[in-house]
Design a protein around this nucleic acid. Structure first.
Lengths: 146, 146
DNA sequence: GCTTGACCTTGCCATTGTGGGAAGCTTCAG
DNA sequence: CTGAAGCTTCCCACAATGGCAAGGTCAAGC
């Protein structure tokens, strides 16, 4: 990993970093940073004469925001909305809360669905003796009712 | 929905059905039936002279198996393995159980991850007053630590 | 016999979010 | 100068599903 090279291009001295450093500082892969730019989550950043992207601290901050939001399971569209609110000083906190609340409910729904699967499978696994004999209630269930 | 048309083609009298009927009888969309054939989950079935796929009851049974397994969250690869065991009369039930057990653990891991998100978000939502004021602990969290 | 509508066929594109890799240029260090 | 590492763009892939379009087919009604 190359350490900070202040002579990188004339602009690096102004606190701007290249995509690799922005990636390391934010936890977002360079691949994803480019992708976020492409889909409009990130602004189009300036480039060096050699066409390298240059990121200001503010951009790195945005990347961290996205990274954290992804870790909480927000979708791209939700993150887009959250970023808009974050950057709007006159936002109503109710709008943020509404997005988060809806996301919680979405997560809970998915959890309930998966928990249902776990319950069903747990029962079947419990009933399956699991030895070298071929009869198996799991297969019976899969083949049978539907 | 077309009712059973036994005179469909000369072969339909042998209990063979077209893809629409196989779909209705199994709960798997025609689109997905073709896809499963393409990826090798289903055998390549015979066709009529007009190139229509013909499904025997055995194939419909397999489709129901897949449908049920999908409903329990098994991946295509897991279903492929389960189908192989199902069709093998000398299978050890332990092999089936192992797949199901691994799938349960996978589900539980994902549930735990999502539950962690719910917990974090629940706390943040609880702390957000959710009115017209702009200050919001949810955004502070997203922007801040990472 | 011909039309009509419902069905079948293939093929291509979109999704969500991420990774891999190729081909080519840039930068830096030795 | 050369090599390694990093940047650029572009294309492909995943898993599983849906949608649409263009064309063939079949059964039923007139």
């Amino acid at each position: 990993m190359r350490a900070q090279a202040p002579e990188r291009a004339e602009a690096l001295q102004k606190g701007l970093v290249d995509i690799g450093q922005a990636s390391a500082a934010s936890g977002v892969s360079a691949k994803m940073i480019r992708h976020y730019e492409e889909i409009g989550l990130l602004p189009v950043v300036p480039r060096t004469a050699a066409n390298y992207r240059l990121y200001a601290p503010q951009h790195v901050q945005t990347l961290r925001f996205i990274h954290r939001a992804r870790a909480l399971g927000f979708s791209m569209d939700e993150i887009r909305a959250l970023l808009g609110l974050w950057q709007n000083r006159r936002r109503p906190s109710a709008a943020v809360r509404k997005i988060a609340q809806a996301h919680i409910e979405d997560l809970q729904q998915r959890i309930a669905q998966m928990q249902g699967m776990v319950d069903t499978l747990g029962h079947l696994v419990h009933c399956c003796h699991g030895d070298e004999r071929p009869d198996c209630p799991i297969l019976v269930d899969l083949a049978g009712e539907d």
